[in-house]
Design a protein around this nucleic acid. Structure first.
Length: 471
RNA sequence: GGCGCGGUAGCCAAGUGGUAAGGCCGAGGUCUGCAAAACCUCUAUGCGCCGGUUCAAUUCCGGCCCGCGCCUCCA
């Protein structure tokens, strides 16, 4: 079944298919700026793109998907961070790149096939700017910066419908408040391709035909996409906030330089809200993966939570939803164990249609909550009708395919139980002894004592474990 | 002000012109000395409000109310 995905440019849901004769599907996902830990809003986009990547692999074959995600390692924020910490830029970005990779791995995201960096592709960016200069789409301003001339590209604004917008009085552009370099530009809409060196940049500058400086933000994606995937790619993705101006500017640069359409398909995932509001430092509702893990949640529950809402709708993230995710994962784990136990070493049967709707639901515009619904509906159905070994063996294969598509690793570590203090283990030992002696009255009294101290005992045949009481 | 998205059970959240998936929580039950786990059952005559179209609307159309996002370097 073909994968259908909403296209931000045409505003239609269209089939995804490779456009090149080699049958390789090429997609570019705008990656993070590495100057701080990414927050879970960032990860919503990367997790959604990861599900997409997995579906593409299932559809076209593992070898027929090429996934590129960049790392922005030179811009205002990274340079400012390095300056504030008195460290070289490369050291700062290396640190946060490593952290980003660790978080991605914890969230079970497949690594992109290429992860190019802006500083690693200065020459490609300069070359591209050079072409734009020669074609008359760019100009060098008095300060040595190079700007893209928006009026030279008639297609500008189609993606974001920028022409249909009215500027809010007092907005940055209308008031030129933020446009520190506005005087250098011919038009406020023009954007920087090359930024002339300033004192604040320190030694983070490169030579170019227009003098020392550094690339503007937008050009890196155009240049690296061209180098690694070609002039026309099959899909370009990112968060909604990148739709304008970032992606609009990428289209302008790439199409003016290459003379062919930039991306066949555009996809934007919506924002994650926290307690009904966009995450922001000022509201204090910004979460990183580490903070959630510190609260006792597993990274897999975070991943599950990020997939609980439709990717093109704002998703309201709460701690309650993390609890829900943790419980849901537990059910899935338990179900898989049942399948495994029942199946044993039986040869899988053929023809079961139990999970037939899950992947197709996912393939219909990445309807992750719909897919979870279909999954649990089937799961309940199977529970109530019972299982034969051959059936279970077959279902196990299907179930694992679904887990792969969603990127849920049920074997991933769950939060380690806190170890109990000595007085608790003493009580527990006493209770266990009482139970073995069948002194149930004493055992029950000790259970109550433990509960009062905030602990519960989970009995097994051969022993017990201790867990802190929930709430 | 402009552009866009949304308002579905206590919470989260799919979906459809023909009478509401699923998860969490909660209640009852089976099973276990107890507890936990697992499994079973139950939980919106209702889908922001008011009109309209229709045999039939939560789903289409119009108006209104409320919320959220974006409006030049934030995933």
């Amino acid at each position: 079944m073909p994968i259908k995905l909403h296209d931000s440019l045409s505003r239609e849901t269209r089939e995804l298919r490779p456009s090149q004769p080699d049958g390789v599907f090429r997609f570019y996902n705008c990656g993070p700026t590495v100057y701080a830990p990414a927050h879970i809003g960032n990860f919503r986009t990367f997790v959604v793109n990861d599900v997409l990547r997995r579906l593409l692999e299932l559809e076209f074959g593992q070898a027929k998907v090429r996934h590129v995600r960049n790392l922005t390692d030179v811009d205002d924020k990274t340079i400012r961070r390095a300056r504030e910490e008195g460290r070289p830029l490369a050291e700062v970005t290396k640190q946060w790149t490593a952290k980003f990779h660790a978080d991605c791995q914890a969230l079970n995201c497949l690594a992109p096939h290429d992860e190019p960096t802006a500083t690693g592709h200065i020459r490609e960016q300069v070359d591209m700017i050079d072409v734009l200069m020669k074609k008359g789409n760019a100009y060098r301003a008095a300060d040595g910066s190079v700007y893209f001339k928006v009026s030279s590209f008639p297609g500008y604004g189609h993606l974001s419908r920028v022409h249909e917008r009215e500027l809010q009085p007092g907005s940055a552009l209308a008031g030129k408040v933020h446009a520190a370099d506005a005087d250098e530009k011919e038009d406020v809409s023009d954007f920087a391709l090359w930024k002339a060196h300033k004192a604040d940049d320190g030694n983070n500058a490169w030579d170019s035909p227009w003098g020392r400086g550094r690339p503007g933000w937008h050009i890196e994606c155009s240049a690296m996409s061209k180098k690694l995937l070609g002039d026309t790619i099959d899909l370009h993705t990112g968060g909604v906030d990148l739709l304008f101006p970032h992606h609009e500017n990428e289209i302008a640069q790439s199409e003016c330089c290459n003379g062919v359409p930039f991306a066949k398909h555009w996809y934007h995932s919506e924002h994650l809200l926290v307690d009904g509001k966009k995450m922001s430092k000022s509201l204090g509702n910004l979460y990183t993966l580490d903070e959630l893990v510190a609260k006792g949640f597993s990274p897999m529950a975070v991943r599950y939570t990020l997939l609980m809402g439709h990717p093109r709708k704002q998703l309201n993230f709460t701690l309650d939803s993390l609890h829900a995710a943790e419980s849901a994962l537990k059910s899935l784990r338990s179900f898989r164990n049942t399948l495994q136990t029942t199946a044993g070493s039986t040869t899988p049967g053929k023809g079961a249609k139990d999970f037939a709707l899950v992947i197709p639901t996912l393939e219909d515009d990445l309807n992750t909550p719909g897919a979870f619904g279909a999954l649990f509906r089937e799961l309940n159905q199977i529970h109530s009708t019972g299982l034969f070994p051959a059936h279970a063996a077959e279902l196990l294969i299907e179930f694992d395919k679904i887990l792969f598509a969603l990127g849920l690793d049920l074997a991933a570590p769950v939060p380690a139980a806190k170890s109990a203090p000595a007085e608790i283990t003493t009580l527990a030992e006493k209770r266990w002894a009482a139970k073995q002696a069948k002194d149930f009255a004493a055992a029950d009294a000790l259970r109550k004592e433990l509960a009062a101290a905030g602990w519960t005992m989970l009995d097994r045949k051969d022993g017990y474990s201790l867990e802190p009481l929930k709430k």
